[in-house]
Amino acid sequence: MNAQAPGTLFKLSETEEIVRRPDEDIRGRDVRDRDGEDLGTVKDLLVDAEEDRVRFIEVASGGFLGIGQDSTLIPVDAITSITEDEVRIDQTRENVAGAPVYDPELVRQRENYGGILEYYGVMPFWGGGYVYPAYPHYR
């Protein structure tokens, strides 16, 4: 996947790539805030093309049968726990509701998704700073 421009994200579902261990594929799991409030479902994983690491989860909420759904990107660093059924994050429902609007075309570039990291108080993963764990792993 490194053929894409540096800093580009891609949706795992739009590729031939798969999660290496099926039990680590969190797509379809419920997402809950730090207080246990329902936020939606993990719809997709956004992967950094340069380093082949999952950087964001796309959370879908609302709608019926996929129609009228809203999507929000949440940095993987906001994840505090993962069980067989759910993903918990360290944010409140209100904070997630106020997050920058998700635009699937714009957000794939570093200059656009950097604002999402900033909003959630997450350090950027580029520039030699903090190295984030690669979860989930995929191949």
Score class of each variant (00 low, 15 high):
D90H: 11
V42K: 04
I79A: 03
S81R: 14
L117C: 06
T72F: 01
Y113E: 05
T92G: 06
Q4K: 12
G7I: 08
L39A: 04
G62I: 07
D38Q: 07
I79H: 03
F10T: 09
R27C: 06
I26K: 02
V122Y: 03
E118T: 14
V59N: 01
D90P: 00
T72D: 08
D30F: 05
A99V: 08
Q91H: 13
L12C: 02
V96I: 10
E50P: 00
L12Q: 03
Y113M: 06
W126C: 03
G68T: 08
G68L: 03
G36T: 13
Y102I: 08
V47S: 03
E58D: 10
Y135S: 12
P75V: 03
T92A: 07
T8K: 14
G28D: 14
G68F: 04
R88L: 14
V101C: 00
V19T: 13
R53H: 00
G121C: 05
Q91M: 12
G121M: 05
P124H: 10
F56W: 06
E51V: 10
D44R: 06
T80Q: 03
G66Y: 05
P104D: 13
E105Q: 15
P136R: 04
V76W: 02
I57H: 02
V87G: 05
Y120E: 06
D44Y: 05
Q4G: 06
A99Y: 01
E58Q: 09
Y132L: 04
D38C: 00
R88G: 10
G40N: 04
E105Y: 09
M1G: 07
I82W: 06
D25G: 10
H137Q: 12
D52V: 06
P104A: 11
F56G: 03
G115D: 14
A99D: 05
S13M: 03
E84M: 07
F125K: 02
Y130E: 08
N112Q: 14
Y138P: 01
E24M: 03
D48Y: 04
D77T: 12
G36E: 13
R88K: 15
G114I: 03
I74C: 02
Q91T: 10
S13R: 12
T92P: 02
V122F: 04
K43A: 15
T72V: 11
R29P: 05
L46R: 04
V54H: 02
E24A: 09
V31H: 08
Q69G: 15
P6G: 07
